[in-house]
Amino acid sequence: MRMLKRPGFIASIVLILIYLVIGIAGQEGHLLSIIGNAMDTMMYIGWALALAVIMSYAGYVSFGHAVFVGIGAWMTAVTIESIMPSHPFTISMFIVALLLGAGVAALVAYAVGWVVLRLRGAYFAIATIGLDYVVLYLAIYTLSRAGISPPLLFRNLSLTVQSFYWMHFTVFVITLLVVYYIKASRFGFGLAAIREDEEAAEVMGVDTFKYKLMAFTLSALIAGMWGVPLAFRHAKFDPQDVFSLLNSVIMIVENTVGGLGTFLGPIVGAYIYYGLYWSLLTKIAQASFVVLGPLIVIIIALVPEGLVGWLREKFPRLRKALE
């Protein structure tokens, strides 16, 4: 019960309420424009929190995390085109896609994690990049075997922006609650112990491998869920797009900027990234990396604990509020 009075939980509830209000208010009129931005921010927060479970809480940087988002999108394509072909869109289609996307992503993570989680640091990072490429080219190969040249365009499901919004919102609520529970539970403390000193954690009786495997699987599960609304929204499954390492880059930037080891860090990081995205990316596109790149370098070299971490350190009074 104590968990429910903590600032992280309160922040989650406030966020959920805000997005609920936006969803209801944005049904019509010029408020519609907010809905697009709200969907984007929800997605970026979701991505950041998905990676945070393994990167920020357990200290294992996964560079190929986009692979799970991609698997989610792939499973959505399978749902729409193979499992429920020629159905009009219903909620059940979304639920099937969600279960399938999250399930397959978690399964892949569990199987692969069994191998790669024995590796430390950079080896783990590179193994995840390798995994991303394996699944990407497998997807391309599978599609072309089926006589489809990527991207696979979905049929017109005549969805509205509102229905996209509620898809995002559903996944968003699940993400916030699950990730907060992970962070605040005993399991989360175990992960923190692994992040700080894996050997010591092992000595203290934490089953580090099991903990890491659970964290990796949960992280993949959440990332897999986020592939589903993305695919619906893009109305297609484009392997080169969803498996793009740039998506992994976004997740890593959000976590790094916001601050590792905190619940609020990735959320703050996501808002910062989104601001950068709209103020830079839509204007100068890839050239915006000229700004993003140095930002990472500066933060790593001078403020390695990230924005939230720095605030916690600078203002000890805020420590309780900034979880």
Binding site: Q286, F289, V290, L292, G293, P294, L295, I296, V297, I300
Partner: peptide, 8 residues
């Protein structure tokens, strides 16, 4: 981060 800068 350095690499991203070069990319941009």
């Amino acid at each position: 981060g350095f690499g991203l800068t070069l990319f941009g």
